[in-house]
Amino acid sequence: MTNASGSAVAERLSVGEVELEVLRRGAGRPVLVLHGLQTVDPRARFLDLLGRTAEIIAPSHPGFGLSPRPADFETVYDLVHLYLELLEALPYEKVALMGLSFGGWLAAEVAVKCRHRIDKLVLVDAFGIKVSDRETPDILDVFNTSPPEVLRRSWHDAGRAPDPNAMSDDELVVRARNWDAACLYGWHPYMYNPQLKRWLRRITVPTLVLWGASDGIVKPSYGRAYSALIPGSRFEVIEGAGHHPEIEQADAFAGAVGRFLGR
């Protein structure tokens, strides 16, 4: 079985009645990775780097990648409960939970609700809360902003962005599915839960909040505020990276995550 890119093997995983495409890599302590607006590219270097000491389990959310989306499964509430159920179903007493961007929002929600199946939490350029005043958006509206501007604000070096012209048809279809699904789940309120901020104090596991220094989608100051709401969490910035430090600075990213998880 091949996945959209034609490389690597994508497994399937059933959670209740929902079937997920899952990317697995490496061996070691289990790490559940929740992807952002785009699914994790199986060729991404950070997977191999983390995989040296960790077993990566990276499902595609329903509607993203090659995961089907059941009818009426269309809210963050659904996603959060799906991953709560997945945590119960995994053959590990506890896993480390990592969320990237939109997936960071999901990870924070899951960590608020579930304290017995998670031993560590990593939030990377995460969405999910409202920090600034009502006329200052914290999270760039990627759906209503010109694509060149979204690109500019997503990357420290936009030259590192995936090039649609170099992608296969299947990969582009997946990108479009991801785009539609992200819009469906995150349109309103745009990429945050107004109530989440209040409950972040319930997160009691060791938490690392990692941020790309050049992130123009959600700025490091937002990450700092996010971190301040999670008791005892640690905030770290990765230089030379925008919204995707795991891609732009895979080594520094894997280093920071590795140090945190190995602690």
Binding site: F143, N144, P164, N165, M167, L172, V173, A176, L184
Partner: peptide, 25 residues
């Protein structure tokens, strides 16, 4: 109309149309 309101508007085309819409050619 800017591309974010047309070509890239989520849900406005089936994902199978993406190869046509996403490439700059």
């Amino acid at each position: 109309s800017a591309p974010q309101y047309s070509r890239f508007l989520p849900g406005s085309s089936p994902p199978q149309a993406a190869p046509q819409l996403y490439r700059t050619a």
